[in-house]
Design a protein around this nucleic acid. Structure first.
Lengths: 247, 247
DNA sequence: GCATCGCTTCGGCGCGGGCCGAAGCATCGG
DNA sequence: CCGATGCTTCGGCCCGCGCCGAAGCGATGC
């Protein structure tokens, strides 16, 4: 008797994600890139017309947005909140008893390193986060994360831009529980800036048509190789040019 | 072609929630109480046998757990993480364009005050949170929340137990974005303790068979009535017994 | 023992919705 | 102009699954 409207909205949202094709589309878009309907159809493993219908529903629900460009239509997640929601949902997937989870080679690549909308996730990201915490640059916990004083100055030093006014309302440092590693990685503005830095410095490279990231040798060394040494990029005038900052 | 196992697990979890009857069951259980199969059937608006099937699936997926007692079986959410996940999902529901959302009187009660697993949500909880923040007892933000020094001593003073070892790993103060109010309320250990305090002090009372809470006049006054005065419960020896602490 | 209650299992019905083929519009290139 | 490409709309097929009636099973009470 007590059917809440809340229950209904919950169901409609969830059933939107509860279709395999649509879930694949969303998973793919969680990589953070904008993709065309055709590419998404390919990833979802269904025909173009079917995909078109799915995309229409997702757009209508506000989960994804579309920009028209020439004769292509590019789709992307409508914001970080959607990505977070999806990862939360994925995290809830393994609350159940450890059941046979089919794991393809493709998934192994994802577990290693992947983009998660605008930051990184997977083993690599988790290790990076742990490293930063070890060195006292950030503090991560269930309660959320924050950047220490040393962290602030260090991130400024290596040229991370953490103060874009546009993104002001967004958390600086969010702790995401990594669904594959079940440990923390760093999201929020800091996470986005770290990802940008990692791409700029060639630590990781996006693999075409996938969320998976290739970790370069340089990227390896930067994080797990003894000490993360970061050759000062545009060092402040006061510092000697060649200074290698060990984190 | 690139079908990730991740997409599949995402879909299975989501489709589990994506059924109206199951969503109603979950919504009801989000109240935090353990309910029998029969009660849940009533709330979901379907027959007992149908409900039984749904409950089996939810238990199997680990979203809810069951304890047998006499000839009843009591079901409850398997933990706060599930409740958080559901609220996150609800929050994503209104990313879309403002569409006609049927709002019954029942929902109005929920918007006013409801239990959210083990803490409070709705207008009342949001106001309470804002109050605590105004008085400098907690700091709430997108980044997560924390309890200030003054907050620590105050909460200790009024007898909130925030250090149960069992719940150690759980965040002390989580900021939940309230789906109905779109502002923060307080979750985590502090949220749970506040709810317990509010019940003990008769600020709110659970309405039978619903997540909705009735706010008593005392509860009103405590939060919105000028200043929140909290008659010292078991005051530390150093303080005069009759001291009314204005928050 | 039998009756009742609470819940589960089984079987079959029916509808919703995902799927594709074919056709219909746009955009771009020649 | 015409064809090719990218995407959408329309129609109809069909599978999956949510639903209930009926029966089964355990626990309680008399």
């Amino acid at each position: 008797m007590t059917r809440f409207a809340s229950g209904l909205t919950l169901a409609t949202t969830a059933s939107l994600i509860g279709d395999v094709a649509r879930a694949n589309i969303l998973c793919t878009l969680t990589g953070g890139q904008a993709l065309t309907a055709g590419e998404l159809a390919h990833h979802a493993g269904v025909s173009a017309q079917t995909t078109s219908g799915h995309l229409a529903k997702l757009v209508d629900a506000g989960l994804i947005t579309v920009v028209k460009q020439g004769r292509h239509r590019y789709f992307k997640l409508s914001g970080p909140r959607v990505a977070d929601m999806l990862e939360t949902l994925m995290g809830a997937a393994d609350l159940g008893p450890a059941r046979h989870r089919p794991v393809g080679p493709r998934d192994e690549a994802l577990r290693r390193a992947r983009s998660c909308y605008d930051h990184m996730a997977g083993r690599y990201a988790v290790e990076l986060a742990a490293r930063l915490e070890d060195r006292g640059l950030v503090v991560l916990s269930d309660e959320g994360g924050y950047v220490t004083e040393q962290g602030s100055s260090f991130f400024a030093l290596i040229g991370l831009d953490l103060d874009q006014p546009a993104a002001r309302r967004r958390p600086l440092c969010r702790c995401c529980l990594d669904w594959s590693e079940r440990r923390f990685h760093i999201g929020g503005r800091l996470g986005a800036a770290l990802f940008a830095h990692a791409e700029r410095e060639n630590w990781v490279a996006r693999l075409p048509g996938s969320r998976a990231l290739r970790v370069t040798r340089k990227g390896e060394q930067a994080v797990s190789g003894g000490s993360w040494r970061c050759e000062a990029v545009e060092p402040p005038a006061a510092l000697p040019r060649a200074l290698a900052i060990s984190v």
